[in-house]
Design a protein around this nucleic acid. Structure first.
Lengths: 335, 335
DNA sequence: TTGAAAGCGCTAACAT
DNA sequence: ATGTTAGCGCTTTCAA
């Protein structure tokens, strides 16, 4: 049986209320405060969050929903969230939804009651479902934006634009883009970037069929890309890009001499050979930032402030990291 | 304000007690049971876990402590845990301890109260600290064994033995082993495997200084390994092995021709070039198995059975996966 | 089969 | 500055 506040109070010779005040920073004389704290320490007292939550109305916990923990992108996000939440002394429930829209919604429903707020990486759920969720719980969207909902995203469109312009500057004129699963917010941002970068001509971007955003997806896409004859390829993420690299090497295609490859996210970019030029996204910082925003929203909701306390749609910058997988097209054929 | 049991009871025209029984499977007439359930469904009722926990004494949640979520090994473990816990309708608190022993202990202390049981991947904490923890909370150790505590591990010693014998069979006589951080359980298991495989001679294993179990650690270790002149290297894990591969390639050392490389864990083994021969460890299954065991222990603890309900020290098999990073030594020099 | 009442551990009025 | 009291939402005796 764990130590309760009663135990501490009895041992310290005060009432439970006083013990509570001493521990949580209420109005108590310094001497009793120290005495109670000493006893609590000695007894290894840990407050029962459930009981506290029952009365304060706050659960003292956060919830995080991600599509796939084994995707290094989301692992990084989770790490950023966990670090910041720990700093705020809030435990976090983590749910992995296996990239299924149904599970995303289900996870939110089951987490809502036990948490003060939810952090959602929900690439699959519909906007409507998200709006509905946000209506019932304090929510911050991560790496997705829905009008009117608090969110923290990275400027993916600009990252893609930077990537295309890098390739164009190198002299590439035809680029294959390998998309991830269709109709995701992140995919739409990439499209925006593509459109922006190709608007004034000089470079053509063709889309290959979408593949899973995994290493295997990249392997699968490689043959399609090579069949096209383009001199450069832009992958949905680093996992796909490394898959591309692997299959290209197996087929005797040299990177970057025969083909330039650009990844996205800067997760496993240095693991393949050659090291990938990629769009760096501050996942971990996004996770931490999202926790900060969520905490502010939770506080505002408690104070029943009608208006959100600050800007609630945050965009973090992205930047291209140039490594060894991109070069001028057909470099080797030059004198 | 979320729907409470009171709301459901009132709407269904029964008492809260009856509503509770109807929902949790107590003794009620089929008709009222269905009626109450229909109302609950219609109102979107979700029980308040905190309130329930207060009275039942069970929190209705599990806790998981891992050293690093961005290490694919632990990401896989977490995924296995999350999947099984979801099947049991139990949310799980996930804590990332940044590979710090102090945080591991701290995390356990703060999670203990809010959970029914803890899953611990704690490579850094001392045995004594773990024993102390297990004294106060239902606990299952993951990928670590401490005498007398429930645990789920993989047979790492046997995996290492298989790796060494593979290299010996290929003709290697001198192998460098790159350890991870010293004095971990996993490290000790590797040593056992090394000892077993070298007992009857024919092959010599030399240790290089320990490095961080990361890609960067592998890059760092590479030069030490190459200076040794051994024909094969056994890395602490795949991350280290891929780092080794990358640095070896940069220095013009060809794998497997000049150097054979064996990884461990089968996490990022196919991402580098060439694909790694590695020891496959069933991380995900271990996570799921650990949840099963923990649930059984929790149930037993509640029934105040003095004896554990089953075997509580589980070992999962490992096996070597041979890919392209190992070959006979100095193959190229042969006719 | 159902309802009334008690109480889990804690905090927030209110009283002192 | 401190104690007393009430009650958060739920389950579980105990009666009916």
């Amino acid at each position: 049986m764990p130590t309760t506040l009663q135990d501490v109070a009895r041992e310290a010779g005060v009432s439970a209320a006083t013990a509570s005040r001493a521990l949580t920073g209420g109005t108590v004389s310094p001497s009793t405060r120290d005495a109670v704290r000493a006893v609590a320490e000695r007894l290894g007292y840990r407050p029962n969050r459930a009981a506290r939550g029952l009365i304060t109305g706050r659960a003292g916990a956060l919830g995080l929903v991600v599509p796939d923990l084994t995707n290094p992108f989301f692992a990084d996000v989770a790490k950023g969230v966990a670090a910041r939440a720990r700093a705020a002394d809030l435990p976090v429930f983590v749910t992995d939804t296996d990239e299924e829209a149904g599970l995303e919604v289900e996870a939110v429903a089951s987490l809502r009651r036990g948490t003060d707020g939810l952090l959602l990486c929900s690439p699959r759920a519909s906007d409507a479902a998200l709006l509905d969720v946000a209506d019932r719980a304090t929510t911050v969207l991560l790496h997705r934006r829905v009008d009117g909902l608090p969110s923290v995203v990275a400027d993916l469109a600009d990252g893609t634009r930077q990537a295309v312009e890098h390739l164009r500057a190198l002299g590439h004129r035809r680029i294959v883009y390998v998309p991830g699963r269709p109709s995701s917010w992140a995919g739409a941002q990439r499209d925006l970037g593509l459109a922006a970068a190709t608007a004034d001509g000089g470079v053509e971007v063709v889309r290959c069929p979408a593949v899973a955003p995994t290493f295997a997806g990249g392997v699968q896409a490689a043959d399609l890309v090579l069949a096209d004859g383009a001199t450069a390829v832009l992958a949905y993420n680093d996992l796909v890009a490394v898959g591309l690299l692997t299959r290209a090497a197996a087929r005797g295609v040299r990177v970057p001499d025969d083909l330039s490859v650009v990844g996205h996210d800067d997760t496993v970019a240095t693991m393949g050979h050659p090291a990938l030029t990629t769009v760096a996204v501050p996942q971990r910082r996004a996770g931490a930032t999202a926790v900060d925003l969520l905490l502010r929203l939770v506080a505002a909701a408690r104070a029943s402030a009608a208006e959100p306390p600050c800007d609630t749609e945050l965009t973090l910058p992205t930047h291209l990291v140039v490594r060894a997988s991109t070069a001028e097209p057909a470099r080797r054929r030059r004198p």
